[in-house]
């Protein structure tokens, strides 16, 4: 059987791998979004005490400073002793927690891009700080954040392939299985896989650019 027949026969496995990668991507981005936004809000508007702020700074340093492969090993083999964690769950946590560190930085600079007068005006009209953040700052900050966030999306779709190292059967590992069962043909199989990553990346970017255009407001947040 030639490599093309194998590829056609095994394509469903690649699709399955892609599905796993996409679930991993979605989960890590959601964790990163929720945690990252929470950390950014606490850093900017929370109590200024060291007890609150220092752990957040430490968190960011740690997750941005350690190679992700080490992080994956720590989460999988390290935590495996403590709790019964699947490699898939370990990958979601490691990548998600690291994305939180990156996203918190994206959101922080987005919130800081909103002129201070916006908060002042909302507060001057009797709006509570929480509501001012929710109704006035958040919608503006998201418009500043969406560009950098699109970059984060692009990096993370590529980073999901690193889950390979702890045995998650995502797209890259499926590709590897096909290669080992057919000997050789590395180039063609990986070219197909590369194309699949590329297509997801491109479509995601298009969606996000579309969203950015949809949210665009005259004269505001132009990049």
């Amino acid at each position: 059987m030639g490599i093309y027949e194998v590829l056609v026969r095994d394509f469903p496995f690649l699709l399955k791998g892609l599905g796993v990668a996409l679930i991993l991507l979605a989960a890590l981005l959601v964790i990163g979004f929720v945690l990252g936004l929470a950390m950014c809000l606490i850093q900017l508007y929370g109590p200024r005490t060291r007890l609150v702020q220092w752990p957040l700074i430490a968190y960011e340093r740690v997750f941005r400073g350690i190679p992700i492969i080490i992080m994956l090993f720590i989460f999988y083999y390290g935590l495996a002793g403590l709790l019964d964690i699947t490699s898939f769950a370990a990958a979601i946590l490691a990548l998600g927690f690291r994305s939180a560190a990156y996203q918190s930085q994206i959101f922080r600079s987005a919130f800081q891009s909103v002129p201070t007068g916006q908060m002042t005006a909302a507060r001057a009209m009797g709006m509570s700080k929480t509501r001012a953040i929710r109704y006035i700052l958040f919608p503006q900050a998201m418009r500043y954040a969406i560009g950098p966030w699109t970059n984060e999306f692009s990096s993370e779709i590529k980073e999901t392939s690193l889950a390979y190292v702890i045995g998650v059967v995502e797209l890259t590992r499926q590709a590897h299985y096909i290669i080992s069962s057919t000997q050789g043909n590395v180039l063609i199989v990986f070219a197909v896989v590369a194309l699949m990553y590329f297509i997801v990346n491109k479509s995601g970017n298009s969606l996000l650019y579309g969203l950015e255009r949809k949210l665009a407001v005259p004269g505001f947040g132009k990049r």
């Binding site: 002042t120 005006a121 009209m125 009797g126 709006m127 407001v217």
Partner: peptide
């Protein structure tokens, strides 16, 4: 503050909202 209007030198209209929403939002949310 909801009973004291404040007008700023540099207006500080909410940049992401239309004129109508600028005038509505504090009525509804405050």
């Amino acid at each position: 503050r909801s009973r004291m209007g404040f007008v700023f030198q540099d207006f500080n209209l909410f940049a992401h909202l239309t004129v109508l929403d600028n005038i509505r939002i504090c009525q509804t949310k405050v």
